[in-house]
């Protein structure tokens, strides 16, 4: 039986912007009736992270791309991490095929 996908929200400290982004995504997912397990972490924890998706800001792309990340993980970069439209536009297609 398939499980809900896990999504990690990543920012520099792992407790401010990532959390703000997670809260916006939570509402986006709820409005699309998608269930997922949401977590947040700092960018320094990205290496070795076990998750289905990573969501972060464009400004973290260089840092995140330096790490060896499991190729099965989809990474979504956002220009505005609290913009629900951008979150929906990028996150929903990325979740396609992973949801229960």
């Amino acid at each position: 039986m398939a499980q809900s996908p896990t999504i990690y929200f990543i920012c520099g400290a792992g407790l401010g912007s990532s959390l703000a982004c997670q809260m916006e995504a939570e509402e986006v997912l709820a409005s699309h009736k998608i269930r997922a397990k949401l977590e947040h972490e700092s960018v320094s924890s990205v290496a070795g992270l076990r998750t289905d998706l990573i969501v972060s800001a464009e400004s973290f792309r260089p840092q995140i791309e330096k790490y060896e990340i499991d190729p099965s993980i989809t990474i979504v970069y956002l220009h505005n991490i609290v913009d629900k439209n951008e979150i929906a536009e990028k996150l929903i297609p990325a979740l396609a095929g992973r949801e229960v």
Binding site: G12, G14, G16, S17, A20, A57, S59, N80, I81
Partner: peptide
Amino acid sequence: DVVDTFGPYIVLAPAVALAHAQ
């Protein structure tokens, strides 16, 4: 340091920054 290292992503919305660190 967070902004120096990771850029101005803490500017979350027009005109608003949320400074924070670990």
